[in-house]
Nucleic acid binder design. Structure first.
Length: 228
DNA sequence: GCGACAG
DNA sequence: ATCTTGTCGC
C-alpha cells in the first residue's frame, strides 16, 4: 500500500502564466493534460458491497465516454482484513478492488471511485490510493463529507460549491440532479478538481450518482445476489 | 471534554 | 456498508 500523495496543481504565477503557450498553460493547470495524447474514451466505475461480516465483493464497470455504454463488468470477492475506520477506508477496500480491476480485459483512461480522493485528512482517500497503485487518473465521488466545511450549492443540477479544509479547496460539492442531495467530487490522482467536476457532471444522466459509480453500485449488488 | 466521522 | 416501513413528490 502506498503512502505517498499526489499534490494538486498549485496556483501558477499569473506573470509567468502569461508568457506560456496555450498548451503549456493547460499543462500547468491540468495534470490530466500533461500526457499530450490523453483522451478520455474509456471510463470505469467501481464499488464494493459486503457479504456478511468478513467478505467483500468489488465490482468494476467499464463504459465508453462520452457515450456511457457499458462495455464490461467484472467482480471479485474475498476476505476483508480490517474493520471500517473513518480515514482508513482504502486499507479495507482497495486490495479487493485491485483484484477486480485486474479482470478487466480493457483498461480505462480514468477511474471513478466511490469515496473521496484528496478530500481526506491526509489527502489520501481511497480514490487517491487506487490511482497511486495503478498509476492512473482517478477521481472520487462521495455521498457524505469526511472533512471540511461547506455550504450547499443551489438546488439546480450543475450547481457547485467548494469544500474547504484548512484554507484549501479540496473538493467540489456538485448537484447532479435537481432538488436532490449533492455529491462530493474530488481529484484522486493525476488530475485536477475542475476536470473531475466536469466529468462527473457529464456522467450525470437522470440519477444522483454519475453513471460509472451508479452502475458499479448496481452490479455489485447484482453479483452479490448471484453469489448468495 | 464534546462532536464528527468516506464505505 | 447493512438492517428496514412507510411515505413524500415528480
Amino acid at each position: 500500500m502506498a503512502y505517498y500523495r499526489n499534490f494538486d496543481t498549485p496556483p501558477p504565477d499569473p506573470k509567468v502564466l502569461q508568457a506560456l503557450t496555450e498548451q503549456q498553460r493547460q499543462m500547468q493547470q491540468r495534470i490530466i493534460l500533461q500526457k499530450p495524447d490523453f483522451e478520455l474514451k474509456l471510463i470505469a466505475g467501481c464499488d464494493s458491497s459486503f457479504i456478511g461480516e468478513d467478505t467483500i465483493l468489488s465490482a468494476f464497470v467499464l463504459l465508453s465516454y462520452p457515450g456511457l455504454e457499458v462495455l464490461e463488468k467484472v467482480w471479485h470477492h474475498g476476505p476483508v482484513e480490517l474493520p471500517y475506520i473513518p480515514g482508513f477506508l482504502a486499507f479495507r477496500e482497495a486490495p479487493n478492488l485491485l483484484k477486480a480491476y485486474e479482470k478487466l480485459q480493457q483498461k480505462p483512461d480514468l477511474i471513478m471511485v466511490d469515496g473521496h480522493g484528496i478530500s481526506h485528512p491526509r489527502r489520501l482517500g481511497i480514490a487517491t490510493h487506487l490511482g497511486l497503485h495503478l498509476n492512473k487518473p482517478t477521481m472520487g465521488v462521495a455521498k457524505k463529507v469526511l472533512v471540511g466545511k461547506y455550504t450547499e450549492p443551489d438546488a439546480a443540477k450543475g450547481s457547485v460549491a467548494p469544500l474547504i479544509y484548512k484554507e484549501e479547496v479540496i473538493a467540489n460539492i456538485l448537484r447532479t440532479k435537481d432538488n436532490v442531495k449533492p455529491v462530493f467530487i474530488s481529484p484522486g490522482h493525476l488530475m485536477d478538481l475542475e476536470s473531475a467536476t466536469e466529468i462527473a457532471l457529464a456522467c450525470a444522466t437522470r440519477y444522483k450518482l454519475p453513471e460509472p459509480t451508479r452502475l458499479a453500485d448496481h452490479y455489485a449488488a447484482v453479483f452479490k445476489s448471484e453469489v448468495l
